[in-house]
């Protein structure tokens, strides 16, 4: 570590900071002195808590990504979106009829989609968000479920949408209904439920319940881990 740190200048929430090159936006913010309480979570790109928007010098485009997954660049303008104000429509899975037009009934703003594709361009997961909203419009919940499967619910799509759609809630609704009513039942799940109900694991569970804390820790350490 003889060489000096290469520094870059970034603008966070409108103020300039010198930070080492190569950090993620999240780490650059922390280096700059921000103590992140909201807008931070798993730090691994899975939880979707750290939505951020930024611009690069000489480029009109407004980019959106996860702060924990994006490298800070020199002269980058950065703002955090620690929370996306959006209502999840009230619904109960058991009361939804998959044949009905439930998506448009619960989220009528889906009908306002003008196919501008801004949502897809904002998606850190690189999902075809507009395509799943369009599929939702035509009631194709299988397609919505498939195209939105990797959504991390960061909400950046909803922040950028000129039609004020809350895409990630729509995708979640479609996935839940698809999973409950349309997806093929998993054979291994049924078999395992059968095993549980017939008492296959009762003895093992009883043994666990008798164990002391130390014995449990020891058993946990020695467990078989399947890769």
């Amino acid at each position: 570590m003889s060489a000096e740190l290469e520094m870059i200048r970034v603008y966070i929430m409108g103020r300039a900071y010198e930070v080492p090159a190569g950090l993620t936006i999240m780490k650059a913010m922390e280096y700059a002195g921000y103590r992140l309480v909201r807008g931070v979570g798993c730090r691994g790109g899975f939880c979707g808590a750290c939505a951020t928007v930024f611009r690069r010098p000489g480029d009109y485009k407004l980019y959106a990504d996860l702060a924990c997954q994006t490298t800070a660049e020199d002269e980058m303008y950065i703002a955090q979106i620690p929370s996306v104000p959006a209502e999840r429509a009230p619904w109960k899975l058991s009361e939804l009829e998959p044949e009905e037009n439930f998506i448009l009934a619960l989220y009528p703003e889906v009908a306002r989609c003008v196919a501008c594709n801004t949502c897809s361009r904002a998606c850190p997961q690189e999902l075809e968000v507009m395509d799943y909203i369009q599929a939702a419009l035509r009631g194709d919940i299988a397609q919505v479920a498939e195209l939105s499967f990797d959504c991390v619910q960061c909400g950046l799509c909803a922040m950028r949408c000129p039609a004020e759609i809350v895409h990630y809630h729509v995708g979640q609704l479609a996935r839940r209904v698809y999973g409950a009513y349309r997806a093929p039942q998993a054979g291994h799940l049924a078999a395992r439920v059968e095993e549980i109900e017939s008492g296959t694991f009762d003895q093992e569970l009883d043994t666990l319940q008798q164990m002391s804390r130390d014995e449990l820790v020891e058993a946990y350490r020695k467990r078989d881990v399947e890769k």
Binding site: E97, N101, L104, A105, P108, E109, A111, L137
Partner: peptide, 20 residues
Amino acid sequence: AVDEAASRRLPQIALVGITR
């Protein structure tokens, strides 16, 4: 306002039309 319960049974082209 378009009634939520009613819209469940409407063709989406009607809903897109009225929403627009």
